[in-house]
Simulated scan of single mutants.
Amino acid sequence: MAQRRTSVWQPFFLAGDSRSAVVDAARELESLGYSRIWSSAGFGTSVPPRFREILDGTTDIGVATGIASIWHVPATDAVDFTDSATRAHPGRFLLGLGASHAAVVDGDSTKYRKPYSKMVEYIDALDAAGQTPEQRVLAALGPKMLKLARNRSAGAHPYFTTVEHTVEAREALGSDPLLAPEVAVVLDDDPAAARATARQYTTGYLALPNYTNNLRRFGWSGADFADGGSDRLVDALIPWGSIEQVTAGIEAHFAGGADEVTIQVLNGGNAKQFPAEEFRALAAALI
């Protein structure tokens, strides 16, 4: 396993209106010791320039797409962006790729077919354009995609998963590839309030079959997916409570085999408000 990393996953870095506010937030995370900033690349036809702006505005912190959709960003564009970012900032940019979801793939309803085969074709195109496996990771959930991540990328960036998945993913990947699960957290020790905040996040994801099918493999059922998730499922997916309780939940992923945990602080669905205070507290406890 690689050296332990504590990183940030935050929609703010794509959703934030102000370039200066985004770069200021990135600089603070860098000063706090976080290893990498992950954020969605959205669903446009290219990797957003915001990722390059963060790289240009910081010195050492890594930057990664979590994820760029293989249905939206052409492979040639992904290679061009990665090459440009790597030339300017060697070793700091990582291309996270994912098969996304049928519900967000535009066009013909039959377009979202055989996402695994689509990923293989996409990686073939990246290879043909000269990209090396070390420059990318896959948003792998199931066994086949985890094996593909092991064999043809630097590792896996699972999203919306439990500690049990982290354990399985490490076993599937072996000891060397990167395993960087996203872990959403709520710093609120009131159970009702914390779970209500968590359900603003879980409700949308539990409508996506890729995630629910993955959770079913670990024994969760339809009853757990209703109304934003059962208490038991919410608690398994999202560490909440005091700083000590939240960090214990994050540490469980490290103990399960993660060598990088990408922390998403949930702040009531406000993607344009950066939760700086929470990231300061987490850095003090974890880094």
Rank of each mutant, 00 (worst) to 15 (best):
F13Y: 11
L97Q: 02
M145L: 15
G107H: 07
M1G: 11
P48W: 05
T59I: 10
K114I: 13
Y201T: 01
A156Y: 06
P191N: 04
T212E: 08
S18P: 10
P74K: 05
W220S: 14
A252V: 12
H89A: 03
K111L: 11
D77N: 13
K111W: 14
S20F: 14
R50D: 03
I238T: 03
K147W: 14
A236V: 07
P115T: 08
T82H: 14
Q135Y: 13
Q264T: 04
E28V: 09
H253F: 12
E30K: 08
Y205E: 01
G268H: 01
A258G: 04
G96L: 07
A284R: 13
A198M: 02
G257I: 05
L148W: 10
I243E: 07
R27M: 04
V73G: 02
R87N: 05
V261K: 07
D124K: 15
T212P: 04
S221P: 13
F12L: 11
S35Y: 07
R136V: 15
I70T: 04
M1H: 12
V47I: 13
Q135D: 13
L55G: 03
G229E: 00
L94I: 09
A284P: 09
D56W: 09
V186P: 03
M1V: 13
I70D: 04
Q135L: 15
V261Y: 10
Y201Q: 00
A139D: 05
R216K: 12
L141H: 10
R5V: 12
G33E: 09
R216P: 11
I243W: 04
A276L: 14
V186D: 01
G91A: 10
D189G: 02
A196I: 00
I37K: 02
A2T: 15
Q245P: 02
D190G: 04
G268T: 01
N213Q: 14
D127A: 12
I67C: 05
A2M: 15
Q3P: 13
V120I: 12
S100V: 05
W240I: 00
Q264W: 00
